[in-house]
Design a protein around this nucleic acid. Sequence first.
DNA 1: CAGAGACTCGAGGAG
DNA 2: CGAGTCTCTG
Length: 664
Amino acid sequence: MQLNPEQIDAVRTTSGPLLVLAGAGTGKTRVVTERIAQLIRLGIRPERILAVTFTNKAAREMQQRVAARLGRSTETRPEISTFHSLCVRILRRQIQRLGYPSQFIICDRGDQESIAREVLQKYKTQTSITPGDLVNRISRWKCAAVRSHEALNHLDPDSPSDYIFAMAYGEYQKQLKLRGAVDFDDLLLLTEEVFSKFPEALKAESGRFDHILVDEYQDTNLSQYRIIKALAERHKNLCVVGDDDQAIYAWRGAEVEHILRFGKDWPGTKAVRLIRNYRSTQPILDWANRLIHLNQKRHPKRLISPSGGDPPFIETFEDDDSEAAGVVENIHTRLHTEKGLKPGDIAILFRTNEQPRPFELHLRVRKIPYVVVGGQSFFDRKETRDIISYLKLFHNPNNDLALLRIINTPKRGIGETTIQRLRESASKENISLWKALCAQADQNDKLSQFRAMMDSYSHLLRRQFTVDNVRGFIEAIEYEKEIERLFPGDGERQRRMESLADIVNAVGSYLKDSNEETSLRGFLDQTSLGEPDFGKDKEERLGNAVTLMTLHAAKGLEFREVYMVGMEEGLLPHKRSILDLASSAIEEERRLCYVGVTRAKRRLTLTMAKHRLKWGKMRQSIPSRFLFELTGDIENPTYIKILSGAFDMRSADPKNGSRPRKRR
DNA sequence: CAGAGACTCGAGGAG
DNA sequence: CGAGTCTCTG
């Protein structure tokens, strides 16, 4: 297909600041790819071009499309990476300036919570703060670029105990640094810090690129904004692409203002608007346009499409289980009656991760292949985290967190008392647990066995990081036997075995694709930054399965047929955003709904359940306000009641009341 | 030291 | 209701 005039305009603007406002389905990826190709055609060396995305998936996709577009015409490739992986690379070179080792560890969520637990113990707080609470609170500060010494100036007025978090934040940072570790948010914060404190570091890093491109710019948080600004300042060849109507990450610090004021930040900006939609039918876009039009804070625009079709469907079910049964039945019949429709063409989208369960159940009954994206992700699985912990230890045995995780997994008779002894000697002599373990190994058979195993595989995998060796090591620790022992049942066992296979596949795929040096550390870096690639086989299976995912995860994707389920007050918009006094909370939910609607190419179905099981209790639900807004039924008495707050979401809490009350 | 059973407490989204 | 933690027993 040919590029349209606006797209051509964007592709041909190859120098200076460029803002591309790209509505949903307007061929944004195409423009980005073509523009990179254009730069190279003009003689820019590929490695002097940096493209930044938010997710690994987006980065991989862009890499593939650019590679396909360029063919073999160039030897080098542009640098296409996520914010976080870009920052890891920068920090590996620069972080020593801030007093961290260049071989710093990247903590995962579990590691963060272990540290938080220790910090909280130290503070002996009587409050019921959990490690998870602390990690969340710190992350919220970090997303807003608030550092530990500034936290006291940014206390949440609604939370009287926030100062405890602020104190603990400082201790948490201290503990991280002590271990030579950083958490996920630190990658951005520290990069920004290195740039602002050490001009020579900034000079070196920004000197690597002459052109920068940022995708999904509406999702940048303050640190990301500053990093990009610093990197592009010299040449000002900065192209940002995004859509203010699809900003759905304010809760993790993203600021739409960044895209709204891009022109002011960068004088001489050229702005291009893409509004011709090549994805959905006009009736679907009519609903989407009508909905998003109700938001106050946005650039006004309206998507148009050349294709027609059915308007979306709304279906109401008795309860959540019949909703799932109904949707699955609908899918079942459509797969048989609609010509050429495959499971891979269909998606079920929902707001929260507790929703997919009944759908999975019914899909299994109907034997329709499906895949749940996100939710219980790769890293939340115990098997994955265990194996990764081993790999981390092979790379650096002094990682106490990883050691504690697997020292007795699979069970090898090293129990709490032994571990306590190790902890004591480690802290007394100020050495790592591993060193303490080595010191005690000659008096303890089990420890010495463990040590020998770790030493030999550490040696092997550092030299030869191959799929076979990884497989061999999993075999050696008898992890599969442990799974078989613990889960004699079929379903659970199979899932866990599959997780194990995923890890091996991830290693294989890393070794195959990676154009950088392939090493254990490279693999660890990649995996600590997000979902790895599981290779072709898995991808093919996914391609032919119904996709179940959250609305957030669906951004950037498209499906021939989409089901948006659970269209109810409290779910979408989510309860918390209804209780939030700021209207921006509801606006973000509206954008989320908009993202969902605009995923559909040909057919969209919105469903709700009149009753929903929550905490084991059946409760009545209220249709989502967005259903009225999508259809334009805003004179409806129910809609007016919803807006006036007639349905009290707080009383929907089973502790204070039984059912949502209707007031007159 | 490991496993079973009682027990509590909780759920927004993601890299 | 279900996941994760705690406690008790063999």
